[in-house]
Design a protein around this nucleic acid. Structure first.
Lengths: 342, 342
DNA sequence: TTGAAAGCGCTACCAG
DNA sequence: CTGGTAGCGCTTTCAA
């Protein structure tokens, strides 16, 4: 059913029907109501592609899915979907075969010029991120999930990675730990750098020297968590505590600790960052995992919300949100073992 | 830059340019080449919404993201993206706030009539799935990832869940296990039913009676894996082996086994289904996890491929693929402990 | 408050 | 092989 046909059945002009459906003020309440009801009854829905052509809006927000970050990503998108429900805005996942293409500049370029999306969300930026520069140059609306250090003004939403890790590390120091290892995220990303900073600052506050041999960077996989933890535990004296970038990393660390005949929470303490997954919970690990905690789903929902604001004209320079991170203590953290105290 | 303007700069008609860019055969090779080069040079890209309006194609494949299945889902989508790269077809994730909305019929209905997508992929069907009936009724192209038992002819891609679990169970029986528990997926879904069947058939082949107290159904989370495994292990005699529906479930089982002071691979054997995640690997669990294995990413890529075939006219009735599943034995499986043999 | 008509940018039919 | 042109279905001036 087309607009023309539908309008004729109502005895109205296409103009009036269009206005009624779009909620324009100049249509009488009575007419609007009638149109709305009949649309449902007769199953009339405007052709979305015609609407898009004429309005110039794509009706979608673009995201680029990198191969490495995807278990976070699904949660984020889920949150977006939650917020976008009923908004008539879609989420467009940009196809790419690239391995680590979250920062594939040509891809963003294509996405923007293709007219498929009204805005894009940039994930895991670097301090000096080319994607941000590109998007700004093109004058295209975008929101950064994370932070960069670019001069370019832009909208962003981030969690306080630095503060979270500082607190986690300080807490371990409070417990008497002196050799604290950190298995951080991909090198070069701002969130990893912020976490590095939080870690170093906490150490230096207590006058504990930074030891580069206790810090590693890489993707958030159980595999790397295990490998790095194994190698750290071979040092002498070995670390008595770990700060980990993700739940998957923590799984690897737990396994490494056990494989050395040690016990998590007694011989070795672990604090990880928990993005709050429905299928893998810090509380349910054995022993339950102390964690810095911030919901990826909530970030996705709020990001969608902010993009919507951006699209309705709120200046990007006004849109900056830094979320605090909770530190939740469970069984995986305990006092440093006596032999390490000495 | 619009087509008209671009064509004028080339000294050609819009018609010819359009045809050249779309690869129509009636354009001379020379002209086509020139047009293609100039398009890149001048940065001309057809307005996608105009193309969509006039062709009636949406240029996107729709997927509905359920809240519960999402860690599989990201892998699947990643695979789709891999295949769709360069095809000028997007993946559209349909926004929904519903908890378990993978089979939200009104949602599919809206998705189809909205004109946003050319085809949809249906996940985790039930034997008699309403979504399939709906899509068939509407005459809309779709591919089912999984199987149903409906009479409606349709395209599908599935893995051999029944065979996989039959082999896993048989293997455990070969090892002397007699009380084998199964923690399966969501009740009512065809894949869960197929796995149930594989399990029961393997038992009955050996004349071992089916015991409903050893089977549970639910979402694939570590939490449920743990809870079910705990409760099974409280039985007397307790099960000496588990068949698990997912890696997350297996994590929960491992923890439950350990929490009872038992050892996986010695006191209790575990085989799980592994969808092959980059961030959590069966091989890296402790002990390494024996698994039935089939790549979700590969399924996503192939599904996208099949949808493309569907859209280019291949009959849905021809598109049926059943993928075999590997059984990979690692350390989590071993002979039934002697006391259980008796 | 309602309607007529001019496009949005492109494809595809029909001519040449 | 190339070009003119009629729409695709809708929104939005402008006029009534």
């Amino acid at each position: 059913m087309k607009l023309k046909e539908f309008a004729r059945q109502l005895g109205l002009s296409p103009t009036t029907v269009s206005r009624a459906l779009s909620g324009y003020p100049e249509v009488s309440e009575k007419t609007r109501k009638r149109v709305a009801e009949e649309a449902v009854r007769l199953g009339y829905r405007p052709n979305i592609n015609a609407v898009r052509l004429v309005t110039g809006r794509a009706g979608a927000i673009g995201v680029v899915m990198g191969r490495t970050a995807e278990f976070h990503f699904a949660e984020f998108m889920s949150g977006m979907a939650e917020r976008l429900d009923g908004e008539d805005i879609d989420i467009l996942v940009s196809p790419t075969a690239d391995r680590d293409s979250t920062d594939d500049v040509p891809l963003y370029s294509r996405l923007v010029t293709s007219g498929r999306v009204d805005a894009v969300i940039v994930h895991s930026p670097k301090p000096n991120d080319e994607r941000i520069a590109l998007l700004h140059r093109l004058g295209f609306p975008f929101l950064v999930h994370g932070r960069s250090e670019t001069d370019v003004p832009h909208a962003w939403l981030d969690i306080d990675n630095e503060g979270a890790v500082r607190r986690a590390t300080s807490h371990l120091l409070d417990l008497g730990h002196k050799r604290i290892a950190m298995i951080n995220g991909r090198p070069g990303r701002t969130f990893s750098l912020h976490r590095d900073k939080g870690y170093r600052d906490a150490l230096s506050e207590r006058g504990i020297p930074f030891d580069a041999r206790l810090v590693a960077h890489g993707n958030f996989t159980d595999e790397l968590g295990f490998r790095f933890a194994r190698s750290f535990l071979e040092q002498s004296p070995r670390p008595t505590a770990f700060v980990a970038g993700s739940m998957m990393t923590a799984l690897g660390i737990y396994r490494a600790v056990r494989s050395r005949g040690l016990v998590v929470g007694r011989d070795v303490s672990v604090i990880a960052h928990d993005d709050v997954f429905p299928y893998l919970t810090a509380e349910n690990m054995g022993p339950s995992l102390s964690a810095t905690r911030s919901s990826m789903r909530a970030a996705g929902a709020r990001s969608a919300d902010l993009v919507l604001q951006l699209l309705s004209g709120r200046p990007a320079t006004e849109i900056h949100e830094l979320w605090p991170v909770e530190l939740i203590l469970r069984e995986s953290t305990g006092p440093a073992p006596p032999e390490a105290q000495s």
